[in-house]
Design a protein around this nucleic acid. Structure first.
Lengths: 336, 336
DNA sequence: GTGAAAGCGCTAACAG
DNA sequence: CTGTTAGCGCTTTCAC
């Protein structure tokens, strides 16, 4: 190395150095036929000597492929998402793909901007944990000329229309099972705690909604006393409520369950003696929380891997089912 | 839209549609002088009509800029890193940069591969939480023709050589302060708990090492009984040790502190009555842990933002100090 | 004001 | 076996 700072060396440089044409360089570098063993070795040697590295941007312009996939999630603050992205990055790496990461912050406008940006950057595909929903967004996604796989939050079109590829969870079944067991354990009153979902803002609450509906249906079918907390003031409201009968709090995510747990701790109530609490997701930090929180395991790893593989299949033009539903497992610990 | 699937429209298409040259299209699109108001408006209108979006890949090839920056961290499992990446992605977005995320898994070989890949993909700069270290790696980083900013883990060259831009923490000062207060609180014996660091594998333990050295120096200067746990079997070893005198566990990260907390809980010991525990990082989940863990706040947000800004400055050729040391704050809760 | 042409680094197609 | 050329979509330069 003459200079410490290696300046970019291109196939043109190699051609000059080897005194052959760029076509020959190409054949050597990319292991193509139609070149003598001798020349190939010489070229490869010179390439190595000079630290030649192909320019992926130029390759992309030529081939239309970037080997990058866009990953869009709500945030990385939520443990669930960081584990998800971790998994996706890992499997992508194994397949020689790179990740362009962007955070939607649950902002519908921002999500659309991100998608547009990613398309301009010519990602080969997109893994989307959607924030938008509705017919317009469905049409928008369908209009996109790149493969997209939705994670967890489905986006539905008109009846009978082709579905957007989707990997999700069997929310209804697992919530039903959990509720049955909770009732069997003698709880007489069950509260549902979840983030605030206001359909008028057009946010995608697909998963929460599934859990919510299942909860309501179950309560009605079994005539069980129930209540729903899904406003921003749920903590105050829960503090203010009077408990009659053995009461359980079924939370739409572990984060809410932990908040409720903290709340009752502050109120001087014991869990599960005074109230039962159940979470959803099984985030890893539960390991450090006492009492052990009963929850429902979201197979994040499987979600990431399945979605990525589905995307790869679609990119490769493989005809595969474009919907996969994963199985959640209930984890009974101490809190209920 | 004639077709649902919008196929890519290029400046050439626009030129054809507007019956002008591509040069004119460029002037209109990119708001350049030398074009009549009339033509500009017409071009912009047609561009909009046809949903023209510039191809960033082609722009990159031409300009040599991608507006992407590579971010390399150890994993996303650790809360610290996910918050860091969250912050970086946020500030990058505000500056119209995109993030290429990769995980080194603390694997030195993989880290180098990642850097090579990113350079080939022509990122404009790299934010690196380094796993490698040593003179060779220093030379390697110096040989790279793109700005790099190191986070937390410094990579040092020979004495007097130019430093690689770096943003880190005042580990020594803050550890010293914490230890002083711990001693003041009457602890007679202090244990240091940290990940296993084996210099023979050439891993970068810059931060841990700073904390460790400060710990050892302090213990020696004050003749305090102390012990170090930094093997993989630290849990067994701690279980087996006999406590004499009021003992504190100073952990190099919250994760270790939480493990130690769990351990003593299982052993039936109370914190802080029987032993004191102190963490490092102040990860957000501590909020759900009881007893409240005393810890040292790592200003992750500031780290991400400062590093990104430094990178931007360097990319912009601004002459700025290439080293920034952030202030950590001690947070006293209940565990010590 | 506008058009034409070169070139970023690479791959693919065709010619010799 | 090897060389030449066109072109991916864009920006820049120079000519009119």
């Amino acid at each position: 190395m003459s200079d410490l700072r290696r300046s970019k060396v291109t196939i043109k440089d190699l051609a000059r150095l080897c005194e052959v044409s760029i076509g020959t360089i190409d054949r050597a570098i990319n292991n193509k036929p139609g070149i003598s063993k001798n020349t190939r070795e010489r070229v490869l040697e010179v390439a190595k000597q000079n630290g030649y590295k192909p320019d992926r941007v130029a390759q992309s312009l030529q081939s239309g492929k970037t080997y990058e996939i866009g990953v869009i999630v709500h945030d990385l603050n939520n443990r669930f998402f960081s584990l998800l992205v971790d998994t996706i990055q890992q499997i992508a790496w194994e397949h020689d793909y790179y990740i362009q990461l962007a955070i939607s912050l649950r902002d519908t406008k921002r999500e659309k901007e991100i998608i547009e940006h990613m398309l301009q950057r010519n990602v080969d595909g997109i893994l989307l944990f959607a924030t938008n929903t509705g017919a317009d967004f469905y049409s928008y996604l369908r209009s996109i000329d790149k493969p997209i796989v939705l994670l967890s939050n489905r986006v539905q079109g008109p009846k009978g229309a082709e579905e957007i590829p989707f990997v999700g969870l069997n929310n209804c079944e697992v919530v039903n099972d959990a509720l049955e067991e909770i009732v069997r354990r003698g709880y007489e009153s069950i509260c549902f705690v979840s983030p605030y979902f206001d359909y008028s803002y057009k946010h995608n609450f697909y998963e929460i909604d599934q859990r919510y509906r299942t909860f309501i249906r179950f309560m009605q079918e079994h005539s069980i006393e129930h209540r729903v907390f899904n406003t921003e003031k749920y903590c105050e409201e829960i503090s203010a409520m009077e408990l009659h009968g053995k009461t359980a709090f079924f939370c739409a995510s572990d984060i809410f369950a932990l908040e409720v747990l903290n709340l009752f701790h502050d109120l001087g109530k014991s869990v599960p003696q005074d109230v039962g609490i159940m979470g959803f997701d099984n985030i890893d930090v539960l390991k450090y929380v006492r009492p052990g929180l009963s929850t429902i395991n979201y197979p994040v790893d499987e979600l990431g891997k399945t979605a990525f593989k589905l995307l790869i299949d679609i990119m490769g033009g493989k005809p595969s089912r474009t919907e996969k539903i994963l199985d959640a497992k209930i984890i009974w610990r101490e809190s209920i």
